[in-house]
Write a protein that binds this DNA or RNA. Structure first.
Length: 879
RNA sequence: GGUCUGUUGGCUCAGUUGGUAGAGCACAUCGUUCACAUCGAUGGGGUCACUGGUUCGAGUCCAGUACAGACCACCA
């Protein structure tokens, strides 16, 4: 067996992945009569490369996928990428700008061919990264949101919604990004707190009559004012309602209306109404039939309706308006004011709300069944608190603006007659218009990128065609994603699945948190604090990266990532590697464990394995990969490596061939089990070692997931073994206390407690190897010689280490007293509890029994320690 | 303004139905015997943010307070 001394991930990872992929190991097969396990991958945006968040997301999907594959479920993990309309277009434009190019200079065709090139490059790079991470997805089913099938699904959905009257086109106020020059949905606006001012501006009354003073954060929009509003119950202004005031600078008469939207307490109690550039004002304007006057262009400059201010940017216009008002003496005061300003989620430019003709989806009818599905438990969020986030959004949903003034995306399937302008919605241009015209132009706009993402769980399986994959794999089982896209994506997938497939797209939504830097900050390019997953893989291996993203993470919570975590996981991988190396050095052939005479250490480690299997399986089922990883780590390292392997050495290096075979069989059995439990987290190293394991064939990824075997579970013996181990620890501790050099051999006398006679006699070899005893004498007190010893007592019995002149009787007395103190505290605690009638009357029976047992045990220990302390007094006296 | 999360040893975090507080890293002492120094042994270190309540018993359940963070929201 030629295993390197240290585990070297680089030597195996790439070739292993290639072996998996080329053998079709990840390819999902439809098996009649068997329930599949399906995950569709949240398609990464083709805007760049994968970051730590994607690595987390990938691990979180690969773990359940590999787990279910090992459980024998036909498993499909379907990968793909997202065209990410606005985000990608934004990036491409940035890149083009470096070459001095613009969208307009290339034209639509030219731009799109560049975009497709971009897609080829980035999707290729991303899928390469996923392979590096060890993602076991079915590449034969890889999809892209703009491929032929997905595009067909998009058109189909658009037509169906339009048919049902759920898609409409209209002139409404929308969020507009003046840099991306497109409309946005409400979800695409991010609010940022900004320090600003509140300008108080006087709007005079007609003919020198009483006017009003309005307070605004956006003076430039006053050019588009078509009214002012006051609260209906505000006595200060009742006389003005129904009248007019004069809009300064523009010298326009504008009406004063009363609307309860106005807050009497805020500002002056008078709000200027700019319906074309403020969503609330728009609402008020609808109620009071105010005019709607746009004063800002799509590019964020003032238009002709702004009169003398035409051509200025909004910011320049603000300054000019303020200085003009000051000159005219109409600016009463300026207050400091902080408020939330909407910005574009892709370029972070301040958005300008403005009226615009766009396509919308009527959301209420779609949202209702989607809310019900979560309420009824058809769709479950894990952790379930995220259902609340979902409800909050779905219950207050507004119509969804789906058209974008972009080029990269699914073009809207609507056709305009060149003669009469009539709109026809259809997959292709109609042959002839009702007006007799045969010339049409397609709508210039594309759809919101989330429109296609919403269909991902079924468009990728072939919908709207009735494919075998769709019939077999839909609905899928689990969706894994970060809490940051519950609105954007999860909610929209749920209502889409219900609307078009009749069933929600998955039954479980597993939510994870964000991966932050070691100071808790978001990892971002601008901060330069990101850790590149590929660098971690390069340095520590993909398994270490994956494991470090699972360890110590609790579901749905953010996690801080530091390189130390990768290092710790790398060390664990190395530990597994070397434990395996040890096993293979001592066991070259497969040995059947069944029917072999097990000793107490075998029974102990096998019982521990049963527990590990139960816990790891349960935690993976619950989606708690942090606890699952922790259990594997502890069992493998603390129990198997630190104890069992060390205990095994006495038989392994002994002369009893039969005992040797038994311990070999157990080593191989447990190692194989550990590899399987670990495989979903660390696929590469476990696969590599599994190949070397005698008697195995095929991939571990197809091996059966371990099951708890009742025939290999021995709780009583395991508990006894723990008593022996505790004695070993106490002996080591005692030796360290009195500064006995670690390697120094000493004799050891043991007086077993009741029930421990046999096991301690059988354990002398372990004491020799693990606590540096040479002669171990297990017997009664009569064996004790008149020698100077250090000693101790624990549940399994008393122990005495003769150390001759090294023993300082005074110090030994002090040491024993410390021990006595410790035990006394235990006794006080337990007897206190048992003396409490409330406890004995109400606590569960096993809990009370456990306390009684502990008390009895500690009483015995105390007895032994006291006796020994008395003896020491005698010795001090003699000496 | 609303909702949610967090506050546990120097640091990063675990802690499943309430039953004597755990890990990793860091620290101290010791250790190269044939799996591993990417290691082993031993040790120090916490009134579980605070205040009440429920309970025989609370890190764990309830209420409130403080601090931190996230998300949502139309106060111009």
């Amino acid at each position: 067996m030629d295993m390197e001394k240290a585990y070297n991930p680089k030597a195996i990872e790439d070739s292993l992945y290639q072996a998996w992929e080329s053998s079709g190991a990840f390819k999902a097969e439809r098996v009649e009569g068997k329930k599949p396990f399906t995950i569709v991958m949240p398609p990464p945006n083709i805007t760049g490369q994968l970051h730590m968040g994607h690595a987390m997301d990938t691990m979180m999907q690969d773990v359940p996928a590999r787990f279910h594959r090992m459980k024998g479920d036909p498993t499909l993990w379907l990968p793909g990428t997202d065209h990410a309309s606005i985000a990608t277009e934004h990036k491409i434009i940035e890149k083009m700008a470096e070459e001095g190019l613009t969208k307009e200079s290339l034209g639509r065709e030219g731009f799109l061919s560049r975009a497709w090139e971009w897609k080829r490059d980035y999707a290729g790079y991303i899928t390469k990264q996923l392979r590096k991470l060890g993602a076991g997805c079915d590449w034969s089913r890889e999809r892209f949101t703009m491929d032929e099938g997905c595009s067909k699904a998009v058109t189909e959905v658009f037509l169906r919604l339009h048919e049902k009257g759920l898609i409409y086109r209209g002139n409404r106020i929308v969020q507009w990004c003046p840099v991306c020059k497109t409309a946005l949905s409400d979800a695409e606006v991010e609010y940022e707190q900004q320090d600003s001012h509140l300008w108080h501006i006087r709007y005079p009354g007609p003919g020198g009559s009483r006017g009003v003073t309005v307070a605004t954060t956006r003076p430039e929009t006053m050019l588009g004012d078509t009214g002012v509003a006051v609260h209906p119950q505000d006595e200060r202004y009742t006389d003005l309602v129904g009248g007019h005031v004069i809009l300064p600078l523009m010298n326009r008469d504008i009406p004063v209306v009363a609307d309860s939207y106005v807050d009497k307490e805020f500002g002056t109690g008078v709000v200027k109404m700019t319906p074309a550039h403020d969503p609330n004002d728009y609402e008020v304007a609808m109620r009071h039939n105010l005019a709607i006057l746009r004063v800002i262009h799509d590019d964020g400059t003032m238009n002709a309706s702004a009169g003398p201010f035409e051509g200025l940017t909004t910011l320049e216009c603000r300054q000019r308006v303020v200085s003009e008002l000051t000159r005219l003496g109409l600016l009463e005061k300026i207050e400091k004011h902080t408020h939330q300003v909407g910005t574009c989620y892709r370029c972070h430019t301040t958005v300008e709300p403005m009226t615009s003709t766009q396509w919308f989806v009527r959301m209420k009818p779609l949202a209702e069944p989607a809310i019900q599905a979560v309420r009824d438990g058809e769709v479950k969020f894990v952790p379930d608190r995220f259902a609340k986030t979902y409800f909050d959004w779905m219950e207050n949903i507004k119509d969804w603006c789906i058209s974008r003034q972009l080029w990269w995306g699914h073009r809207i399937p609507a056709w305009y007659c060149r003669d009469c302008g009539r709109i026809t919605v259809g997959a292709a241009a109609p042959a002839v218009c009702a007006c007799g015209c045969v010339a049409f132009t397609q709508d210039e706009d594309v759809l919101d990128t989330w429109f296609s993402s919403a269909l991902w769980p079924f468009s990728t399986l072939g919908w709207p065609d009735k494919t075998e994959d769709l019939a077999y794999f839909y609905p899928t089982d689990m969706l894994v994603t970060g809490y940051d896209i519950i609105f954007f994506w999860v909610a929209r997938m749920v209502f889409s699945g219900i609307a078009y497939m009749g069933k929600p797209p998955f039954h479980t939504v597993l939510i994870h948190g964000l991966v932050r830097d070691d100071q808790g900050r978001k990892m971002s390019k601008s901060l330069g604090n990101g850790i590149d997953p590929l660098e971690v893989i390069d340095k520590y291996g993909a398994d270490a990266l994956r494991f470090s993203l699972a360890m110590g993470v609790s579901p749905g919570n953010d996690t801080r990532y530091s390189i130390e975590k990768a290092e710790a996981a790398r060390n664990f991988a190395n530990k597994i590697w070397n434990a395996s190396r040890f096993v293979f050095m001592n066991a070259q052939e497969a040995i059947n464990l069944h029917g072999r005479p097990l000793d107490i250490t075998d029974k102990w480690i096998l019982s521990g394995f049963t527990i590990a299997v139960r816990e790891v399986t349960a935690h993976i089922n619950e989606g708690d990969f942090g606890l699952a990883a922790q259990k594997i780590y502890d069992y493998s390292w603390s129990e198997f490596c630190d104890w069992y392997i060390e205990l095994a050495k006495s038989r392994l290096f002994g002369t009893d061939d039969d005992a040797k075979d038994t311990v070999r069989a157990v080593l191989l059995y447990v190692l194989e089990g550990i590899l399987k439990l670990l495989h979903p987290f660390m696929p590469f190293i476990t696969e590599a070692i599994y190949k070397l394991l005698p008697g195995t064939e095929g991939f571990i990824m197809h091996a059966a997931w371990p099951e708890a075997d009742p025939a290999l579970f021995f709780p009583d013996e395991a508990a006894q073994m723990q008593g022996v181990m505790e004695m070993m620890k106490r002996i080591r501790n005692t030796r360290a206390d009195v500064n006995v050099a670690p390697g120094k051999k000493t004799r050891l006398f043991i007086i077993p407690a009741e029930g421990y006679q046999q096991i301690l006699k059988d354990s002398t070899a372990f004491f020799q190897r693990l606590v540096w005893a040479q002669d171990v004498i297990v017997g009664d007190g009569g064996l004790l010689l008149k020698e100077k010893t250090v000693s101790g007592a624990c549940a399994a019995g008393e122990f005495y280490i003769p150390l001759g002149d090294m023993v300082d009787i005074q110090k030994e007395t002090q040491r024993l007293e410390k021990e006595i103190d410790r035990i006394r505290k235990e006794i006080d605690r337990a007897s206190g509890m048992l003396a409490n009638p409330g406890f004995t009357a109400k606590a569960a029976a096993p809990v009370i029994q456990a306390e009684r047992d502990k008390l009895a045990e500690n009483n015995k220990i105390m007895e032994a320690l006291n006796r020994r302390a008395d003896e020491l007094k005698g010795e001090a006296h003699d000496g």
